[in-house]
């Protein structure tokens, strides 16, 4: 039986070299040559400075911007490294809330968000994605319904007509691939950049 030990050891070494070093390093080289933008994280520059990645959601809190979905990501507490604190859209520590459907904490958070949103746009039904956290905590998108829901607030804050903003949302809405695969979505960072351009900032 021990004669099987030699192939066991040699094979692990060989496969490590082939699939663990040669393969990922060659892939990195080819990817960097063929698709440098995507291979480096689809970063977006503005005025020569990197302001984010088009795939990674950012935290928006100012009323003059469209907001993303609630995010459950955390970070270590700078005061006490054994604890964590809420840090929405922490792109170095992706996570969902993992709250179950009968969780009291979940329902309290949702209720709080619902009240805030009701005050901002009374009477309109609240799109479910605006009060639920995403799986990664880094969802770059909101649904078209969630973008349209925020139009009155943003319009008021920016002094722009609501119709202009609705057109902006429509232009930034990405449909399904070939009209079939996926779900319609609006990339919040790109929407807000287009909004800044529209408002002349």
């Amino acid at each position: 039986m021990l004669k099987e030990l030699r192939p066991a050891i040699v094979m692990i070494v060989l496969f490590t070299v082939l699939t663990g070093l040669a393969y990922p390093l060659a892939m990195t080289g080819i990817a960097q040559a063929l698709f440098p933008r995507q291979a480096n994280g689809s970063l977006i520059e503005k005025g020569g400075k990197v302001i984010g990645s088009e795939l990674i959601g950012q935290n928006f809190e100012k009323p003059g911007y469209f907001h993303g979905r609630p995010s459950a990501t955390t970070d270590t507490d700078p005061k006490d490294p054994t604890k964590t604190i809420a840090a929405p859209y922490n792109a170095a520590n992706s996570a969902g809330s993992n709250a179950g459907p009968t969780s009291k904490a979940l329902m309290e958070r949702v209720q709080g968000d619902v009240e805030k949103l009701k005050a901002e746009n009374p009477g309109a039904p609240i799109p479910v994605d605006l009060v639920t956290t995403s799986a990664s905590g880094l969802d770059p998108d909101i649904s078209p319904a969630a973008a349209l829901f925020q139009v009155p607030r943003v319009a008021k804050e920016r002094g722009l007509p609501q119709q202009r903003l609705r057109e902006l949302v429509a232009a930034q809405t990405e449909g399904r691939f070939l009209g079939v695969i996926g779900e319609p979505s609006v990339n919040v960072l790109r929407l807000n950049m287009a909004l800044d351009a529209l408002a002349g900032r």
Partner: peptide
């Protein structure tokens, strides 16, 4: 969640349903 006045129906503008822990795309 629907009882709180949240719209969880699927439509052309949103996927609806239980979106806690799910991604828009």
């Amino acid at each position: 969640i629907a009882k709180l006045g949240v719209d969880t129906d699927a439509s052309a503008l949103q996927a609806g349903g239980n979106m806690e822990g799910k991604e828009i795309r």
